[in-house]
């Protein structure tokens, strides 16, 4: 019997080594695997390279990992946000390295890693400073730059539901980087609201097939979803917004 589920987030992040490259899903707070990041902070691995679209929000999740001094290098498209004060401070103090990648190139480089592509030519960034030093080629009259895949040792992602084979479905725009990061890491660790019985996920609607997933850990419902129904959440500033009855 295949059973990729684990009983705790601590077990799910066991074995992550110092110096690892870790992909962390999410776009801002949507889809950020906060419970797994908390477990990684507890687990203690440091000197990490983090691949994530942003560089943390507020003082929780990825921002908390940064605040602990565990991250040597960030690869991301958009670190600077209104609530990215932890990263901003580290960067200005020269305590973290930063590689800025246009968001679509970041996504495609991650996708390429999972799909076994050696490199690809992208039109994004041509003629800009972010293409500096990269090989350029004109194909059918259009200019492109050569981009290489980004692989990771570990991916930490958040999905909505999963089964013991690792099949996953996501919720709304919290899907974002989950499916491509799942395929791009040697070990993919997924937190889900709920582990469901094998066969409970419609095969026509599975977004990430279990072949890309190694570990699944249930962390309980997100506060704004109960019994599969949306019940109102908090906005990005943390203000409570319950559904009016």
């Amino acid at each position: 019997m295949i059973d990729k589920t684990l009983p705790s987030t601590a077990a799910a992040v066991a074995g992550i080594e110092d110096g690892s490259t870790v992909m962390i899903g999410g776009f801002g707070r949507a889809g950020q695997p906060v419970e797994l990041i908390d477990a990684l902070i507890e687990q203690g691995a440091g000197d990490l390279t983090i691949v994530s679209n942003n560089a943390g929000n507020g003082d929780t999740g990825l921002a908390a990992l940064l605040a602990k001094g565990r991250v040597r290098r960030m690869i991301c498209s958009f670190p600077r946000q209104h609530d990215s004060w932890v990263f901003d401070g580290l960067y200005r103090a020269g305590e973290i390295e930063l590689e800025i990648v246009p968001q679509g190139n970041l996504a495609e480089r991650i996708r390429a890693a999972g799909a076994g592509i050696g490199a690809f030519f992208s039109p994004t960034g041509v003629g800009t400073e972010l293409a500096g030093g990269k090989e350029e080629r004109t194909i059918d009259g259009r200019r492109y730059v050569l981009e290489y895949p980004i692989r990771a040792d570990i991916a930490l992602i958040s999905a909505y539901r999963g089964d013991r084979w690792g099949n996953l479905v996501y919720r709304e725009t919290a899907r974002n980087f989950g499916p491509i990061m799942a395929a791009a890491a040697s070990t993919t660790v997924v937190q889900v609201d709920e582990v469901v019985e094998l066969g409970a996920l419609d095969p026509e609607a599975v977004v990430t097939p279990g072949i890309f997933v190694n570990r699944v850990v249930p962390v309980g419902s997100r506060p704004w979803v109960q019994g599969g129904a949306f019940v109102g959440g908090v906005d990005i500033e943390g203000r409570s917004c319950q559904v009016r009855s």
Partner: peptide, 28 residues
Amino acid sequence: AGLIDPDLINAGKQPVTALAGAAYFHHA
């Protein structure tokens, strides 16, 4: 105000809604 869904945001990370006929997809 009562229907903010933290999983449903736009590129500016502001809460939005999805119309009938909407589709979700990954970043690539």
